[in-house]
Amino acid sequence: MNAPVSKTHLVLIPSYNTGARLLLETVGNVLAHWAPVWVVIDGSTDGSGEALQIFAASQPGLRVIVRDKNSGKGASVLHAARLALAEGFTHALVMDADGQHPVGRIRDFMAVSQAEPAALVLGKPVFGPEAPLVRLKGRKLSIGLVHFECLGDGIDDPLFGFRVYPLAPLVDVMRRTWFARRYDFDPELAVRLFWAGVPAINLPAACKYLSRTEGGISHFHYLRDNLRMIWLHTRLITALLLHKWPAARRAQKKRKQQSSA
């Protein structure tokens, strides 16, 4: 399969200690579907960055960006987004490096983004039977909170990280907050972009959980990151009640008008 080479849309993969084998496999699969591909090595210490740089020497569609210190997914995306804007790119499909996201859907998501360039194209995960039940229940709670923060629906899944961002609104929203730099990145950006009037398009996308024997990697810390999510929704709800509710109402009105047109 010959991957199309785009001058406007790139695939962006943040990676922290994903493991050299899994990262190379993921990036290789993505390159078969799209180019260019940018990978941000976010302070990894497992040798995956060095292995990928060797691989990149033979892959003209691949760029490796190395950050010396681990700063989180949101910080990595923001760093790369600023570089991409400076080089003339307008959109980035952000996806995880751990093999959970469906590379076969990249072209479909990019095509929708190219047809609707103002929109945030969000993946709505379709889970297999291997998905942990506790994660699915926690997801329902997050979806309910985000619907409250947006005064209605429109964001089908705020946690799924397979999505195409218009880069200019992404950078603009992130420079207005000190947060959204780690596990809070995906849900906070979905809500804040909604408040900013960026339309959302939700598309189904398969998601698979890899076991440890399959090379699955998770850096989710149950206590620390759940506390971070509680703080995320506390500040979003506070912002909504204090001053963001008019923006949320406008966004909901616009969404309903577009859906009925």
Results as ranks from 00 to 15, higher is better:
T18C: 14
A97Y: 02
F55R: 14
P169G: 12
L241A: 10
R175P: 00
A32M: 06
H33T: 06
G88A: 11
W231I: 01
F160T: 07
H221M: 07
K137T: 04
A180G: 12
E130G: 04
G99Q: 11
I237M: 06
V103C: 07
I217H: 10
A115F: 03
L62D: 05
V126L: 15
I143S: 01
P166I: 05
E116S: 14
L159A: 07
G123T: 08
I13D: 10
K254R: 15
Y165H: 15
W195C: 04
R182T: 14
G28K: 08
A180Y: 09
N70I: 00
K7H: 11
S48V: 11
G152F: 09
I106Q: 11
Q114A: 15
W195H: 10
K256L: 15
P132V: 02
L133A: 14
C207Q: 08
T8W: 01
A190E: 03
S260K: 12
A180K: 02
M95K: 02
H221P: 00
G74H: 10
A196Q: 10
W178S: 15
P117S: 12
A51Q: 11
V66W: 07
E149I: 08
W34K: 03
D153P: 10
I237F: 07
E130D: 15
W231V: 07
K256W: 00
E188H: 04
A32Q: 15
D186M: 03
K253H: 08
K140A: 12
G28N: 13
G144M: 09
K208S: 12
V164I: 13
L12S: 03
I41S: 12
I41C: 12
H221L: 07
G47S: 09
W195Q: 06
A168F: 01
S211R: 07
G43L: 11
A80D: 10
N202H: 05
A248Q: 10
L31E: 10
D42Q: 07
V198P: 00
